[in-house]
């Protein structure tokens, strides 16, 4: 039946391919929780625990059972959305992560949109005018961008825009205390404020967001610009572009209708890789800007050895990334119709 719909078949196939990866991710995160130095029960029982309460924790956590049985229990808990309790906040880790996830996503997505909005035009310009100042600018940005430690760029931006120029708000969190948090609809302050029509708060949140998002964007700019330039150069030198030009199509049509559409695929692939970097760099940026996302949550948890929280964070990030890669692969079929048929 499915053979009648090759597109659908390809999509389902790709979704099925994500399953072993998810299983692998769960296995690794299980091993990480069980590989704690010494005895996990000692950690989870707390600092004040004595022999008896450690033993109690061991049984409560199921650590006295064989490894395979522990794994089954772990998977069962995961399926119920149970990631354990956070020692610091006293709430379930899953709740904490869900509360803080929108802040991180808002930051990462804004940064990626910002980076794409700068990098893709820059890459196209560099590819269409090789050897000019745009090309050199592109090369400098690309080489410098990958060498910049995000936490350092963030600090320099704070110094310049907050301390020296005084145009940025103090780098503490998502919203200055003079504003009232917008009602919780999606958890994204910009969207929530826009939905409730509170433009004062929207501006406050945007001001607070621009420096951390800019920091993250600077970091993700480089691979995107580099890949756009390279794949545009490749597309522009191919035969169908020569044919299109010979046929007398306008420069605009050739560039955006034909060359860019074909160059987009590797760029989208890079976007997936860049997202992985961005999720990692997010942790550092959140720490620098005291951004209340899941990254700074994990850092706080690390400092006090709150392992359930850290492992929950690692697992959540990995699952997020797997889903994202899935979405990107599905985007391929939308960008390039040939792909769906090739897979069948």
């Amino acid at each position: 039946m499915l053979s009648a719909y090759p597109r659908l078949r390809a999509v389902l196939l790709r979704c099925a391919q994500a399953i072993p990866v998810v299983i692998g991710v769960v296995v690794i995160s299980f091993l990480l929780t069980r590989a704690l130095p010494g005895d996990p029960a000692v950690y989870f029982a707390g600092v004040m625990a004595d022999e008896a309460s450690i033993e109690e924790t061991r049984i409560a956590m199921g650590l006295d059972k064989p490894m395979t049985q522990q794994f089954v229990i772990y998977v069962g808990e995961l399926l119920r959305g149970d990631l354990g309790m956070s020692l610091t906040s006293g709430r379930p880790v899953a709740t904490d992560l869900a509360n803080r996830l929108p802040a991180s996503l808002e930051l990462t997505l804004t940064a990626l949109i910002l980076a794409s909005a700068i990098a893709i035009p820059l890459g196209i310009l560099a590819a269409t005018r090789p050897g000019t100042w745009v090309d050199h600018l592109c090369r400098v940005v690309v080489t410098a961008g990958v060498s910049l430690p995000t936490f350092f760029t963030g600090i320099v931006l704070i110094f310049v825009f907050y301390y020296l120029l005084g145009i940025a708000p103090s780098p503490l969190g998502r919203l200055d205390f003079i504003y009232i948090e917008p009602d919780h609809i999606t958890g994204f302050y910009l969207i929530d404020a826009a939905l409730t029509g509170d433009w004062e708060t929207w501006r406050g949140a945007a001001k607070q967001l621009i420096l951390p998002a800019g920091t993250l964007a600077l970091f993700t700019l480089a691979p995107l610009a580099r890949m756009t330039r390279a794949s545009m150069l490749g597309a522009l030198s191919s035969d169908f572009i020569r044919t299109a030009r010979a046929a007398g199509l306008t420069n605009r049509k050739v560039l955006y209708g034909y060359a860019f559409r074909n160059a987009l695929l590797p760029v989208v692939t890079t976007l997936g890789m860049v997202f992985s970097f961005a999720l990692g760099a997010n942790v550092l940026v959140e720490k620098v800007f005291a951004w209340p996302g899941i990254g700074s949550y994990a850092v706080e948890a690390l400092v006090v050895s709150d392992y359930a929280a850290v492992q929950g964070f690692v697992l959540a990030m990995a699952l997020l990334f797997v889903v994202l890669n899935l979405v990107i692969d599905l985007l391929y079929t939308a960008i390039d119709p040939r792909i769906g048929f090739e897979a069948s």
Partner: peptide, 12 residues
């Protein structure tokens, strides 16, 4: 391994 954001995996 590559399914993890790598810095996050290193943290873990």
């Amino acid at each position: 391994i590559m399914a993890f954001p790598l810095f996050v995996l290193a943290m873990g």
